Amino acid sequence: MKPTLLVLAAGMGSRYGGVKQIDKFGPNGECLMDYSLYDAVKAGFGKIVFIVREEIEQDVRDLFDKNLKPHVEVEYAIQRLEEPSDIIPTGIERGKPWGTGHAVLAAADKINEPFAVINADDYYGPEAYQILAKYLSGDLKEGDYSMVGYILSNTLSDYGSVSRGCCQVENGFLTEVIERTKIERNGTGIKYDDKSGKGVLPESTVVSMNFWGFTPDVFDRFKTRFAEFVKENASDPKSEFFIPLPVQEMIEEKSARVKVFETNSTWFGVTYTEDKEFVSNSLKKLIADGVYPEKLWN
């Protein structure tokens, strides 16, 4: 059975100032997501599931259905602030989604096979899709998870701070992943400043860029942990249930193991408006180098 690709495309884009998931970056008006989807189809993923906000669902369908449906199955799921309704109490005032782990839960009734998760506004490179497509097509047991790890120094923005899942890896498996926020380079190195405190991160730190591989048992596991998260954080409108949070808990409980595929592949993403020119120029270079055709889906 071919694996599925789950695309997290419901973010608000508050720092970008627009719907960056469907903004145009390629020479013929391609979104950054177009290149991810192209790589996924070539790597052998058999289905694409988009997690979107209700107000952009039709725009996403209009952009991608015509190019994808001749090649793969396509489905959509809505990330709603009030769902799962058996977990989230009524009357909570919240203006932003509950985070990437919550977004994954929105696809629970769409996926019954091993799947990968990506951000819609990140470029991961063809090799990453090839690696996870091959791994997810293998003989996996429940709790056999995976991720593609990138080098921190290759994933920063020149225009402001970012959040990253900072990883410890031993013998090819993840032993710890901690979500760090407000990471940025200054004159003396790479620093972070978040709820846990302040610190310095080595340039070579392996980080998760939200390119995960899961078996479908993860939905029940995430839901259980999300219920606990909501009980503790319902009154905080800025709290987010990031994917690394439940993954770290499962690693500590030894109920899951995460194979890490480290890569030096090119990564770039869109966080700030100022990132747009760099992303567009990076895509032009990849086309000039023959990684992609100029007209992507022809």
Rank of each mutant, 00 (worst) to 15 (best):
Y124P: 06
L6V: 07
V279Y: 04
N210W: 08
A128D: 05
I251G: 07
K66D: 14
A234T: 01
A77L: 01
Y192T: 08
P216E: 12
G213D: 12
Q58W: 02
P126Q: 11
K223E: 14
P202K: 10
S146R: 03
P3I: 09
A234E: 03
G125Q: 02
K47E: 15
T90H: 10
I243F: 11
M147D: 08
E170G: 02
E170N: 05
I51W: 02
P84A: 03
T224E: 13
V19D: 15
A77S: 15
K2P: 15
K69D: 00
R180P: 10
A227L: 02
G165C: 13
C166D: 13
K285F: 10
N28W: 09
Y292V: 02
S282A: 13
A107H: 06
M1L: 13
P246Q: 10
S265W: 00
W212E: 05
V104Q: 01
K198G: 11
N28P: 01
G17I: 06
D289W: 03
E253N: 13
Q130M: 02
K295C: 09
I87S: 01
V72C: 12
A288E: 15
Q168G: 03
M147P: 06
T175D: 13
V49L: 02
D193M: 14
Q248E: 07
G143L: 14
A227Y: 06
D34K: 02
G95Q: 08
E83K: 08
L68G: 06
L105N: 05
G160A: 00
E54I: 00
E57W: 00
